[in-house]
Amino acid sequence: MAPVIEATGLTKRFGDLVAVDHVTFRVEQGEVFGFLGPNGAGKTTTMRMIQCVSPKTEGSLQVFGMEVEGHESEIKRQIGVVPQENNLDPDFTVYKNLLVYARYFDIPLPEAEATIQELLTFVELSEKRDTPIEKLSGGMKRRLILARALINRPRLLILDEPTVGLDPQARHLIWERLREIRNRGNTIVLTTHYLEEAERLCDRLVIMDRGGILVEGPPRELVKRHAGTHVVEADDTPQVRACLDRLGARYEPMGELLQAYTDTPRDVTRALVGECQMGHVAARPATLEDVFLRLTGRKLRE
């Protein structure tokens, strides 16, 4: 089957700034595809090009097999968007927001009403039907935006940081709903800063930095490839370094600690505690966060 999104050498410049720098990726039908990366990496810019609201500077970008340029309305008709910034219509209630949005898609009124009913139940907002937007909590707004993005029954759902600022309950609700949407055969593209979210939801993901894609693959595989199965942490002292060097372990300083990436945490821990007489040693399973920090560094981004 043709890929849902195919980007080749996709580039976006804002004046001299290269926000997205020759990225190439493919999103297949039915998968959840994640974009990770520090602030300013170019995630939102990439999403906006896929959504056909921001023209690309260079490269090629196809959605549903159509070149984005010149097919904007056709593509937009089949996608749903959860933007990074909330943009619900503050002049309307919950229900009216969805109704007005359905009209933009030329959905006939009876069908729109039925869909809205269903979607409000889906995001558990039926009780808030007649509430003005300003009276909703942050989590409710996010859920309403998700419902709004589904109003046209999109083949492709694009979510830019869908769970930002949500409590664990709200986040779990959204994750569950996204899985349901995926299970119906739809494709989901999302960006997130929550690495746990990416690890749980994404079939495949890319890590972006400074406009480029650093790595791509299924989350488990990326962890295995770039961090091993486990991380062993010990104080950063010359003795520990010498000891780890002797063991031939890959390690990196992370603040005041050394982190060793290994598939044999038991051996490394035993060696550190036993032979090297180290006090503080801890072993834990490696996570996507280890990969992320290794690849993008610890420095704060502007």
Binding site: S73, L88, P90, Y101
Partner: peptide
Amino acid sequence: QKTYDAIIATP
């Protein structure tokens, strides 16, 4: 209100 942004995400 970002109303335009919301609308141009539709057809």
